[in-house]
Amino acid sequence: MTGISGAATILAVCAVWIVVLQGTAFAVGHRIRRYNVVDVIWGLGFVGIGVVALVLGGGDLTRRTVLAVVVAVWGLRLSWHMHVKTRGHGEDPRYVDYLGQDPTVGTVIGKVFATQGGSQLWVGLPIVVSAVCGATTGPGWILLVVGVAAALVGFSFEAIGDAQLREYKADPDRGPIMDRGLWGWTRHPNYFGDACLWWGLWLIAASGGLPAVLTVLSPVAMTYFIVYATGARRLEAAMAGRPGYADYCARTSYFLPRPPRRSP
């Protein structure tokens, strides 16, 4: 499939995939009364989008394959990590605060599952549109290589940051604040990694030229939400009262990694 009509068809198939995935997650979450299962399927949604774009797209095969592989490696790791992280635990306090103590079915579907499903389609738009673009040529190869590098940096920050956090939580002599490894350079290495990865994926998609270049608002929206809306900012508010956190903030970058400042 190529052209605008091809992209529309691929997007429609991706929408069906997302509806089925989100509907299944809602059914499971409603049965166990724990809606943070939606975090487990965040990565899986993009894995499906990458596969659909690879199979149905008529654009450059190399670019489609690169996008599908990068998204699959990232999405499967993230979903497994979230499954292990949430397994055997109760509802995430963020969802209790967001939904209230006794939310209606309509509230849960609208505020959690439908919202996340729409976000997956919007953020995955570069993958969809790139699938119908022509071959990568000339300067486009530079964008593809830089995009792959950025995506690898982002994946590494997420995976290493999560591993370091697990080690910290397993240490009986840990302090009140995680400031080891990457967490000493940025207070949110996983969110920084996520932003890097999606800008990298957009660069890979943009290597095919128009109209994929025009999907730049997808990584812009993703970055805004993980930095200012639902990600780092909300976590900061939850951590604000923890002993030592103010000093940690004073010496550690909020988002972009840099060497820690010397404590006052």
Rank of each mutant, 00 (worst) to 15 (best):
S156G: 14
V19C: 10
L99I: 00
Y191C: 02
G90V: 05
A221W: 15
D39L: 00
L165G: 01
V66T: 07
T24D: 12
Q116L: 07
A150Y: 10
C14K: 07
V20P: 03
V13R: 01
V71S: 15
D92L: 05
V20G: 04
G193L: 08
A206V: 09
V96D: 14
D97Q: 15
R166S: 14
G200T: 01
L217V: 15
D162L: 07
T9D: 10
G175I: 03
E91S: 00
A12S: 07
I10S: 03
L210R: 14
A8T: 06
V47E: 06
T104E: 11
C14Q: 10
G88K: 09
V146R: 02
M1H: 14
V108R: 00
A221F: 13
G193K: 08
R33K: 15
F113M: 02
A212W: 06
N190D: 04
Y98E: 13
L78Q: 08
S5M: 15
R31F: 03
N36P: 09
V20M: 02
I41G: 01
P103F: 03
A246N: 07
F255T: 00
D173L: 04
Y191A: 06
G45R: 06
L197S: 11
M222L: 15
V105F: 10
P189L: 05
G45I: 00
I127P: 11
N36E: 09
V128Q: 05
A229Y: 11
W74S: 08
T104P: 09
A68D: 01
V132M: 03
G3A: 04
I160D: 08
L256A: 13
M1I: 14
Y95W: 06
V16F: 04
T186W: 10
G124N: 01
H83G: 13
D171E: 05
Q22L: 09
S5P: 09
T86E: 12
T86C: 14
R233S: 15
N36C: 04
G138L: 02
A195N: 02
V70K: 12
A159R: 13
R31V: 01
D60E: 01
L210C: 10
L76H: 05
R262C: 09
F255H: 02
R33L: 05
W74C: 04
V52H: 10
G45A: 08
V52F: 03
Q116N: 04
Y254I: 12
S218I: 06
W202P: 01
R258H: 08
P211A: 04
T107D: 12
I177D: 00
